[in-house]
C-alpha cells in the first residue's frame, strides 16, 4: 500500500512539473498555432537565471526566483520579437517555425553551457535543509509541495485572468481566428507578444522549481518540453484545463505504470501514451 501511495505522490509531483510547462506551451500554441520547441529553452533560462541571482548576486530565494521568472518571460518575448514574428509575418509554414524553434533551443542550450558549464547544479543548497512531510505513508518535500501548489495556483489565476479581462477575450479571439481579430482592431502582434511573455514566465517558474527539487543542467530543456507537449496533446491541444489534466494524467501513468515494469521504461511509456492518443484521440481529452 505504501508503494502505491508513494508512486501516486511521485506521479502528482511529476504531473505538476509537466503542467507548468504544458500551460505555457498550450497558451502559446493557442494563439500562434505552432509547436514552439524553444519553450523548453526558456525553462532552462529560468533555472539558470535563478542560479545566477542566487550564486553571483547573492539574492535570497524568493527575489531570485521572482527575477528569474521575469527573465524567462523576457527571453520568450525576445524570441517572439526577433524570430517568430518576422517569420509569421512572412506567412511561414508551421514546419518552418518548428525547425526555427528547434534551432533556437539548440542555440540557447549551447550558450548556457558555454557560460555556466555543462555540469549539473542542485539549487537546493541555497535553500537550506529540506523538510520532509509524511502523507498517508508516502513522503513529500516542501519544494515538491510548492511545485504542486504553484501549478494549481498558476492554472487557477491564469484561467481567471483570461476569462475576466479584456486581454483574455482578445487572446481567445486571436485563437479563434487571427485575421478576423486583426480586422476587428485587436493589436494581435502585441497581444501575442504578451502571451509569449506570460507563457515563458510560467515555463521559467517550472525551470526554477525543478532546479530546487533536483537541479539544473543545460540539457534539461528538451526532456521537460517533450513531456509538456505530450501532456498538452493528451489533455487537449490549445486548452489550458486540458494541458493540466493531461499533465497530471501523464505523471500518474508514468509512475504507476512502472509498478510492475522496470523503471527504465518510463520514457517508452510516456511516448507510447502519446502515440496512443495521437492515433485514437488526437484532439485530446478536453479539446477546445
Amino acid at each position: 500500500m505504501d508503494l502505491f501511495v508513494q508512486l501516486t505522490i511521485n506521479g502528482v509531483i511529476a504531473g505538476a512539473i509537466y503542467a507548468l510547462i504544458a500551460l505555457g506551451f498550450a497558451l502559446i500554441f493557442g494563439v500562434t498555432k505552432f509547436f514552439n520547441l524553444a519553450h523548453g529553452a526558456v525553462a532552462v533560462v529560468g533555472g539558470y537565471a535563478a542560479f545566477f541571482f542566487l550564486e553571483h548576486a547573492g539574492l535570497g530565494v524568493l527575489p531570485a526566483a521572482a527575477l528569474a521568472v521575469c527573465v524567462a518571460g523576457m527571453v520568450g518575448f525576445a524570441l517572439h520579437k526577433t524570430v517568430f514574428l518576422p517569420l509569421r509575418r512572412r506567412q511561414a509554414t508551421n514546419l518552418v517555425l518548428l525547425i526555427a524553434a528547434l534551432g533556437l533551443l539548440t542555440v540557447i542550450q549551447a550558450l548556457i553551457a558555454m557560460f555556466f558549464g555543462s555540469q549539473f547544479h542542485p539549487l537546493s543548497q541555497f535553500a537550506g535543509a529540506q523538510e520532509v512531510y509524511r502523507i498517508a505513508g508516502g513522503a513529500i518535500t516542501l519544494v515538491q509541495l510548492i511545485i504542486i501548489i504553484s501549478a494549481l495556483a498558476v492554472f487557477g489565476l491564469l484561467t481567471l485572468f483570461l476569462k475576466k479581462t479584456k486581454f483574455g477575450k482578445a487572446v481567445k479571439a486571436i485563437g479563434d481566428d487571427e485575421e478576423v481579430a486583426q480586422i476587428v482592431g485587436i493589436n494581435t502582434h502585441a497581444i501575442i507578444g504578451y502571451v509569449f511573455f506570460i507563457g515563458s514566465a510560467i515555463a521559467g517558474l517550472g525551470g526554477v522549481l525543478v532546479g530546487f527539487d533536483t537541479g539544473i543542467e543545460p540539457t534539461m530543456g528538451l526532456s521537460l518540453l517533450l513531456k509538456g507537449i505530450i501532456a498538452a496533446i493528451v489533455g487537449g491541444v490549445g486548452s489550458l484545463s486540458g494541458a493540466v489534466l493531461g499533465a497530471f494524467l501523464l505523471g500518474l501513468a508514468e509512475n504507476l505504470g512502472i509498478w510492475h515494469i522496470s523503471g527504465e521504461w518510463k520514457d517508452a511509456i510516456a511516448f507510447g501514451i502519446l502515440i496512443f492518443f495521437l492515433i485514437w484521440r488526437p484532439r485530446g481529452i478536453l479539446p477546445r
Partner: peptide, 21 residues
C-alpha cells in the same frame, strides 16, 4: 530488487520507491 535508470535521468524517485518497497 534491480532498477536501472538512464544516464541522463535526474529523478530517481520511481526506482527508489520500488527499491524501498
Amino acid at each position: 530488487a534491480e532498477e536501472g535508470y538512464e544516464q541522463t535521468s535526474r529523478d530517481l524517485r520511481s526506482q527508489l520507491t520500488k527499491i524501498k518497497a
